[in-house]
Design a protein around this nucleic acid. Structure first.
Length: 560
RNA sequence: UGGGGCGUAGCCAAGUGGUAAGGCAGCGGAUUUUGAUUCCGCCAUCCCCUGGUUCGAAUCCAGGCGCCCCAGCCA
């Protein structure tokens, strides 16, 4: 028996799945229902991806369902743009809510009725205190609060006032509806929390139909109950709210009995994942928008070229637990590389071109050579690449005075041009400023394809493109948006990495990359994985570097 | 000095009384027409600390210490 339980591998990958599996095994639920409940006040980021994968993942694994429910209880911050973007992002990540699309605003009328029920049970009251007065009366972390002078109004008066709040008779902030719980509770959430506040604002879905809006606490659990959510999974900061969540569920005649469980939110080195900060980056013009490829938003990651499969793998790797954690960005990069290595076809692109003239190659001649599209996947086929007398190689692949262990091109040395010939550097041409502008090389016609009949070896293989046949492109390289591993969220603007974006305006690509059937994603050999940016226009290609290849040489050269 | 959580390797994270999984990073080495990939090997005598219980403790008990969250009419 225990053997059988252990073979249900997916069932026990984290404490929440353990709970779900246990509830199902014990018959407490016939099937599991979860929900992903974003507030439409910003774009989804990689932290949300953790919650999405958890909620939708559990539903999939246990044969249940997961709703997408917008927590749209604050019209002053929420917008339709976000509602649309969130749906697109969840789909892109690879999840489907079927017909389980809901809005907390769908439940406003029922919520209102439950608030009246609470008033009738003498468990809620209308408070006329000002915000400042309420704050002062709330007490502190170590001192109890004081009861509101309006706490003992009659049921009739409360019902009347609450009705008039709804009718729009009072201005914003004039009154609130509060639960009557315990102003002396050590848990501040229980010190008569606000259930409804007056907000004369237009709501993206209900328009101006309402002038009062329920608070998160009053809306969330009941929404779960309405949808039959069995496991309401949220982040650690809501742990303190669970007693309140339960208080509402137990005080009201709701249709089901959901339970809340909390897990630690994701933190990533060199990045910031607070909506406030991300909003600030966008509003402050520090990035080009929510989908700037440097942003940790799903929209940004997508534009950067990160495949959803890699994101899901990353989330799986980091696990789910209750300890606050800061995950190394390297883990994400690993997941991206691992997926792209398998799926991306290879092409050659020279990011920082250096012209090379093959002196013994006939002028006017050119020829086609065969290049494989994927070294580990023969089914990806091959493609022709055109070779000619003038080519471009990567500036970094030449060193006039090579440092030790540098075994690419330098005066007098021979290297292999990938899929082409061995070449030897004969002469370095410089301009008046002393900068290298061109290399004069010779090639060995016998090494066509890349192997020497005499068996001689070269220590390096470098990539190249034909000068005449390659196409120009802009390539954007990205580095972390922040310069510190743990940026100070409060002062994020001062900790931005000035080198987070590097634009290479004169890259040269294999011409196939300009075509309509150019592979996507693609690996530029020896450099990294790239994705075409939507800024691309006919004749003006733009590529984003999703992530570079692992670079052992960088370590070797840095260590001297 | 209130309430709620959490502390296992540089970073994540299994483990729930029987003698420390796995991943990332790192370090060696092999293969290589990408200094990539792949492949092998190494990487916690010890689980925040101190006592205690037990034949046996990361796991149980007691007392400490450290970190995070809560005083929005935000979610």
């Amino acid at each position: 028996m225990s053997v059988v339980e252990k073979t249900e591998t997916e069932a026990g990958r984290d404490f929440i799945r353990d709970i779900v599996a246990g509830d199902l095994a014990a018959g407490r639920h016939k099937s599991v229902v979860t929900r992903f409940p974003p507030e439409p006040n910003g774009y989804l980021h990689i932290g949300h991806a953790k919650s999405i994968c958890l909620n939708f993942g559990i539903a999939q694994e246990f044969g249940g369902r997961c709703n997408l429910r917008f927590d749209d209880t604050n019209p002053t911050k929420e917008e339709q743009e976000y509602i649309d973007a969130i749906q697109a992002d969840v789909r892109w990540l690879g999840f489907d809510w079927g017909n389980g699309l809901y809005y907390a605003s769908d439940y406003f009328e029922r919520l209102y009725g439950w608030a009246q029920d609470l008033i009738r049970a003498s468990s809620a009251y209308v408070d006329d205190q000002s915000q400042d007065e309420m704050r002062a009366a709330r007490g502190t972390l170590t001192e109890p609060g004081k009861n509101s002078p309006f706490r003992d109004r009659s049921i009739e008066e409360n019902l009347d006032l609450f009705g008039r709040m709804r009718a729009g008779e009072f201005p914003n902030g004039a009154r609130v509806l509060r639960a009557k719980i315990d102003m002396a509770s050590g848990n501040i959430n229980l010190r008569d929390p606000v259930l409804y506040r007056i907000l004369h604002a237009s709501h993206p879905r209900t328009g101006t139909q309402w002038t009062i809006y329920p608070s998160y606490d009053f809306a969330h659990g009941q929404s779960d109950a309405i949808e039959g959510v069995t496991h309401s999974i949220c982040t650690l900061e809501f742990e303190d709210h669970r007693p309140l969540y339960d208080w509402f569920i137990e005080s009201l005649s709701v249709p089901s009995r959901p339970h809340q469980y909390e897990f630690a939110r994701l933190n990533l080195t060199y990045t910031v994942l607070s909506k406030r900060a991300l909003n600030g980056l966008v509003r402050g013009g520090h990035v080009s928008g929510w989908d700037d490829p440097r942003m940790p938003t799903l929209a940004g990651l997508r534009r950067r070229g990160v495949p959803p499969e890699a994101l899901r793998d990353f989330i799986k790797r980091i696990g789910v637990a209750k300890a606050n954690s800061l995950v190394d960005l390297g883990v994400l990069e690993f997941s991206i590389r691992e997926h792209l290595n398998k799926t991306a076809q290879r092409r050659m692109a020279v990011l920082r071109p250096l012209k090379v003239v093959i002196e013994n190659y006939p002028e006017g001649k050119s020829e086609e050579l065969e290049a494989v599209n994927h070294p580990d996947d023969a089914s990806a086929g091959t493609r022709p690449v055109r070779f000619a007398r003038e080519i471009f190689i990567e500036r970094d692949d030449f060193m006039e005075t090579p440092v030790k262990k540098f075994f690419r091109l330098s005066p007098g040395t021979e290297v292999r041009l990938r899929y082409a010939f061995f070449i030897t550097c004969r002469e370095v041409v410089k301009n008046a400023a002393g900068e290298v502008t061109e290399l004069r090389c010779t090639y060995d016609p016998a090494t066509r394809g890349g192997n020497a009949p005499d068996g001689r070896k070269v220590k390096a293989t470098i990539h190249w493109v034909s000068a005449a046949d390659s196409v120009p492109a802009e390539v954007r390289l990205y580095n972390p948006l922040f310069s510190k591993p743990e940026p100070d969220v409060a002062n994020f603007a001062t900790e931005l990495n000035p080198k987070s974006l590097e634009v290479l305006a004169d890259a040269r690509l294999e011409p196939v990359l300009a075509g309509g059937n150019s592979p996507e994603p693609v690996q530029f050999e020896r450099q990294g994985y790239f994705a075409r940016d939507p800024d691309s226009k006919p004749g003006r290609l733009v590529f984003n570097r999703t992530v570079g290849l692992r670079d052992t040489w960088a370590k070797v050269s840095a260590s001297g």
